[in-house]
């Protein structure tokens, strides 16, 4: 075992990358749940975004177009969930599970001819002299634009939910759809927009895996990140900054166990591989002992009866 083989700078820079798909998927789901809807289809929307983004990037040669296509793909798939739960008033849990299974199958079908291809690379942002600062430079200023967008999205979500009228209305719909309806807010329309936002974010998260983190396409490559995102939202008590913290914790341990595997630590690989999931959930359970934060209407079907 040789722990000195782990370069702390590369390690930190690496875990920022590892956490990014999770940040996207989780922040989207946070908005969806704040509106009172529980969409368990995150994994399905992520993998659909992953293949949409991958295929578009390969065909056009532009990673940015790929990310745009991934967001559109995730949002379009989420419309299926909108139709089932907001129009047909189907059960949200069952619809979400169906969405995941559908997304996994659809992506496998779409991705058949893309296995083994390398996608075009998204260049890192050139921060000029900033990247030359010792330690801080390589950690903070050697990434692509999507990673920074993820962090910005967390900040923006926090600010919108806390300070703006749109955020207040979104929270109100999630707290009591009956009261919101009585005041004349369009519950279904607001939830539809939230679900589509969630789908677009999940799609971006998926594409980040297939275009940047792994850069290739394999079936089922999101490997449960969507499920971790769902757990993360709950254990982060629907708070954006705590969610970011949880995502970095998960990313950090993922990166650490990969490095430990590389360094040849005498722990079976299976234990190392499961450690990020276990530790993230344990830490967040301990953090989330203030239980009252769940939107009161989460998962309940709204039917406007006047």
């Amino acid at each position: 075992m040789d722990l000195s083989a782990i370069n702390p700078i590369l390690f930190v820079a690496g875990f920022l990358v590892a956490a990014t798909p999770l940040i996207f998927a989780a922040i989207g789901e946070l908005v969806v749940e704040k509106s009172g809807t529980l969409n368990l289809g995150v994994e399905g929307m992520m993998i659909t975004g992953a293949i949409c983004g991958f295929a578009t990037a390969v065909e056009t040669g532009s990673p940015m177009l790929g990310f745009a296509a991934a967001a559109v793909g995730g949002a379009v798939l989420s419309l299926l969930f909108v139709f089932l739960t907001q129009v047909a008033l189907a059960n949200q849990v069952a619809s979400g599970l169906a969405l995941t299974l559908f997304g996994l199958g659809l992506s496998a079908l779409l991705g058949q001819s893309y296995v083994g291809i390398k996608p075009p690379r998204l260049p890192d942002i050139n921060f000029g002299p900033l990247a030359d600062i010792p330690v801080v430079g390589p950690i903070l200023f050697t990434h692509d634009i999507i990673l920074y967008l993820g962090i910005a999205l967390v900040a923006a979500t926090w600010a919108v939910l806390k300070f703006t009228r749109a955020g207040l209305i979104l929270r109100a719909v999630g707290e009591s759809h009956d009261a919101a309806h009585a005041l004349g807010y369009k519950v279904v329309r607001i939830r539809t927009l939230a679900i589509m936002f969630g789908g677009a974010c999940a799609g971006l998260g998926g594409a980040y895996i297939s275009l940047i983190r792994v850069p290739q396409w394999t079936e089922g490559m999101t490997a449960g990140v969507g499920w971790i995102a769902l757990a993360l939202v709950v254990f982060a008590s629907w708070k954006p900054w705590r969610l970011l913290l949880g995502a970095y914790l998960f990313g950090g341990i993922t990166q650490l166990q990969l490095n430990l595997q590389g360094a040849g630590v005498a722990i079976p690989v299976e234990y190392l591989a499961m450690s990020p999931y276990l530790i993230t959930i344990i830490v967040l359970v301990i953090l989330s002992r203030d239980k009252s934060a769940a939107p009161a209407c989460l998962g309940r079907t709204f039917h406007a009866s006047s």
């Binding site: 707290e175 009591s176 009585a182």
Partner: peptide, 20 residues
């Protein structure tokens, strides 16, 4: 002024009023 269903328990008085 409604009999039921028009306040949000988890929000503050001012936020509730702003919504209406």
């Amino acid at each position: 002024v409604f009999q039921h269903f028009s306040l949000f328990d988890a929000l503050t008085v001012a936020e509730n009023i702003a919504l209406g």
